[in-house]
């Protein structure tokens, strides 16, 4: 494994992209940063601009209005970068399946690298998912 990928696994900065979620997943993502879970232990930081991000945390259905913007944000993330889909809605459509405003799932719009299911996934699940992602990257 080269140094670049190792560094990436040591300090993944995440950008949080909500594409029409119900907030639950978003809260749980933020929760991961707070004292009980403290993702900074793993060097994970929430950043304010996709330019700084190494990973996009996508939550929610892909609504029509979000779709071009999400793609735009993905393009603005410097590569190498990964996309993490969080929550049932972003995996499929969850309970919102069939809505006229969500024709596509997240992975039909963005190249999702890892899926973290749950409605909402517990912070533990998110951390486990991210850890698995890091292992995956390390194995690359």
């Amino acid at each position: 494994m080269n140094l670049k990928m190792k560094a990436l696994t040591k300090s993944p900065w995440v950008y949080h992209l909500s594409t029409g979620s119900c907030n639950n997943c978003d809260i749980e993502i933020l929760d991961c940063l707070t004292p009980r879970f403290d993702l900074e232990r793993f060097g994970i930081q929430l950043v304010g601009s996709p330019r700084h991000a190494d990973a996009l945390l996508v939550t929610g259905n892909m609504t029509l209005k979000s779709m071009p913007r999400a793609l735009e944000v993905y393009n603005q993330m410097p590569k190498p970068g990964v996309v993490i889909a969080i929550g049932t809605c972003s995996l499929g459509h969850g309970i919102f399946d069939g809505s006229y405003i969500c024709p596509k799932t997240v992975d039909e719009v963005l190249p999702v690298d890892i899926y973290i299911p749950g409605c909402p996934p517990k912070p533990e699940a998110i951390i486990a998912g991210v850890a698995k992602l890091l292992n995956k990257l390390a194995g690359k």
Binding site: K4, S11, G43
Partner: peptide, 20 residues
């Protein structure tokens, strides 16, 4: 919170160097 490990700033720096 616990906070980042000692080498964290270093890794942040190296990682950013490797990005596009």
């Amino acid at each position: 919170r616990v906070g980042p490990p000692l080498l964290q700033p270093f890794w942040d720096f190296v990682k950013l160097l490797g990005k596009e």
